[in-house]
Computed example of a mutant assay.
Amino acid sequence: HQLFIVSKKDVESRDAGDVGVKPMGTGPYKFVEWVKGSHLKFTANEAYWGGAPKIKQVELKIITEPATRFAALASGSVDLVSGLPLEMFEQIQQNPKLEILSRPSRRVIYLALGNKAGTPLADVRVRRAIYLAINEDEIIQKVMQGKASPAAQLADSASTGFNPALKRLPFDPEKSKALLKEAGYESGFEITLAGPNDRYVNDAKIAEAAVQYLNKVGIKAKLDVKPKAVFFPEVTSREKFDFYLLSWLDGAYDSARGISTNLATYNKEKGWGGWNGARFSDPEIDALMDQAAAMVDLAERDKLLQKAHVVIQEKVPLIPLHCGIDLYGLVKDRGVKFTPRPERWLVYKEIEKN
């Protein structure tokens, strides 16, 4: 979803579909071939303004099955695997020919909640009860195999507005039940948690665990997971869900973007709420985003956004779960020099191979 500088003459001479599958830009590599579902090939642009890249030929293979990805790495048919499956971690770690590289992920996995009038979720006590019912520490240990760290807010530590003082609400099923009783839902209510099953690390398993925790406090929760190609358009339609699993990685390193995109009331003119699929709406959060948009003093803006994250925790439009760990596998004897980037981009001109 990033578009870099392209040739005006080239773009205007072709239709959008052709440009999309046969791009021409100003980057360090030239597009050679794309076989959908199989691979992409690139060759070095020797005339690149920043200097020709050291790796001259690049083939990006699309391998969706974890076992097949491991086999490709172990056999040496690939040099580098991005998005190493957790279930393959120990096998790769025990293989003397392979190496694992990792760095903390900036991507925050979270559960989004609506607050539509007339529904149980309209009551903040219910939303907080759902938060308190979920044992995130257990999700990290059992579902994520310890390869994640708990998140307390939508922002990661590298983003403007990250609030270091903010902590997750503790797992407390008894307090969750008490809040449900106080809100008039001692016998629970029905709710469906939606999510993707092929986008984030163990996404369906995380959602399944959350549903199980909710049932333990008396909420009659059901699971609705599906491929991302189906799920994401349903989120952005803002008509389908009240409760779903999603994530956010802020490429702009500014948490106002994450809040306005995922939590602010939908407003086409302001560019708000495009991924607010549960249609959560709160005037205080919206007012804070208006203030942030007009604030140029970076220190003051940081304070304002830190305050926004406190307000968000009080209002509970989302339940932050965790940030994972980005894992990569390398074949040791290939001489590949690769440093993982914080946003997980593979920038081939930055990679070297002896």
Rank of each mutant, 00 (worst) to 15 (best):
A16N: 11
G17Q: 07
V21R: 15
V21A: 13
V21Y: 06
M24V: 15
K30C: 11
K30I: 06
K30S: 12
F31G: 12
V32M: 06
W34R: 14
K36N: 14
G37I: 04
S38C: 12
S38K: 15
L40C: 10
K41S: 14
F42V: 08
T43N: 14
A44S: 12
N45T: 10
E46N: 14
E46P: 06
A47F: 03
G50H: 10
G50E: 09
G51K: 05
A52S: 13
A52D: 01
K54Q: 15
K54S: 15
K54I: 07
K54G: 15
I55W: 01
I55A: 12
K56C: 04
Q57K: 13
Q57P: 01
Q57H: 12
V58P: 00
V58G: 03
K61P: 02
I62L: 14
I63L: 14
I63M: 12
T64H: 10
T64M: 06
P66M: 04
P66F: 00
A67G: 07
R69E: 09
R69M: 12
F70I: 04
A71E: 12
A72I: 04
L73A: 08
L73D: 02
L73M: 02
A74E: 10
A74L: 05
S75Y: 07
S75A: 15
V78W: 00
D79L: 09
G83L: 06
G83T: 11
L86D: 06
E90I: 04
E90P: 01
Q91T: 12
I92Q: 04
Q93C: 07
Q93E: 11
N95V: 03
N95K: 10
N95F: 02
N95H: 10
K97P: 00
K97W: 00
L98I: 08
I100P: 03
L101Q: 05
R103Y: 01
R106F: 04
R107A: 10
V108S: 08
G114K: 02
G114R: 03
N115C: 09
G118H: 08
G118C: 07
T119I: 10
T119H: 11
A122H: 09
D123Y: 05
R125A: 10
R125I: 06
R125Q: 13
R125F: 01
V126F: 02
R127V: 03
R127K: 13
A129L: 07
A129N: 08
A133C: 15
E136H: 12
E136D: 12
D137L: 05
E138A: 15
E138F: 05
I139Q: 04
I139E: 02
I140V: 11
I140K: 03
Q141P: 02
K142L: 06
Q145M: 10
G146A: 12
K147G: 04
K147W: 00
A148P: 02
S149H: 08
S149L: 12
P150S: 11
L154Q: 04
L154G: 12
D156L: 07
D156E: 11
D156M: 06
A158K: 15
T160M: 10
G161K: 05
G161V: 03
F162Q: 03
F162M: 07
